[in-house]
């Protein structure tokens, strides 16, 4: 699976693509199957908004125990926030989804925190 992400120009915030607009939560991100041409179409649309976002790109997701998570640790940190300040970034919002991310098991990495998101 894939999702589309970027940083918003005006404030640098991490955003994800959802049906033609940008949202701030990975939980709300639109997900595509790896071979879905809609993913690259969305990427082209995102790259066509240089006054809105910087550097739109697709990220790979991995499945684990019925959940989807960004494949790379870097992207998981972007989706949550820095691990040294747990009250900073998107993780600060708390709530069921964030807790599910933080408590889930079976991420791609063998160590450290496990940050997953429920599959839609």
């Amino acid at each position: 699976m894939k999702a589309l992400t970027a940083n918003r120009l005006i404030d640098g915030d991490v955003v994800f693509w959802k049906a033609g607009h940008w949202v701030e939560r990975f939980a709300e991100a639109q997900l595509w199957a790896d071979d879905d041409p809609a993913a690259t179409a969305a990427e082209d649309a995102g790259k066509g908004q240089p006054k809105v976002v910087v550097d739109a790109y697709l990220i790979d997701l991995v499945e684990s125990e019925g959940l989807w998570a960004p494949l790379s640790y870097r992207e998981r940190i972007r989706a949550l926030g820095p691990s040294n300040h747990l009250h900073h970034g998107k993780q600060a919002e708390g709530g069921a989804v964030i807790e599910a991310l933080q408590h889930a098991h079976g991420a791609a990495r063998s160590t450290g925190r496990v940050n997953l998101i429920k599959r839609k």
Binding site: N7, L9, D11, K51, V54, G81, G89
Partner: peptide
């Protein structure tokens, strides 16, 4: 929109402004 990111990036960097993972 008068400057694109490729043009702006070196200018902001000359003022110590980076775009990092979560913000500038």
């Amino acid at each position: 929109g008068e400057l694109n990111e490729d043009q702006f990036k070196p200018l902001r960097l000359m003022n110590g402004l980076y775009l990092q993972l979560h913000a500038y």
